[in-house]
Amino acid sequence: MIIKPTLRDRPGAWALSDYPEGTYWEAGYLTQKNAGWRSERPVIDKEKCTGCLQCYLYCPDGTIDSDLNIDCDFCKGCGICAKICRVSAIRMEGETR
């Protein structure tokens, strides 16, 4: 198991008793995705990819894992991965409804 903040099921409205008494809480507790920020998504062409892992390394959000799976729940579409790729194996594709 890798260590990573994970998305939890947040019960709708929180009762006062659900809140901590002090300013502390469980580490790595996520209730929201960041996907809505994105207007473009990266797509990796696995044929062209040489596995150099620069996209994994330089992603500010850690949304590309070292097996090159992209976590589209948290990708903000900044495009750093597409630009850092030496063989242009990543292209940014417009999000459409």
């Binding site: 890798i2 903000k76 750093i80």
Partner: peptide, 18 residues
């Protein structure tokens, strides 16, 4: 990159894109 752990300790944050 290969020597790094797969663990992500700072993830899901609300920093601006890029």
């Amino acid at each position: 990159a290969r020597e790094l752990t797969k663990d992500e300790y700072f993830f899901g944050h609300k920093a601006c894109a890029g």
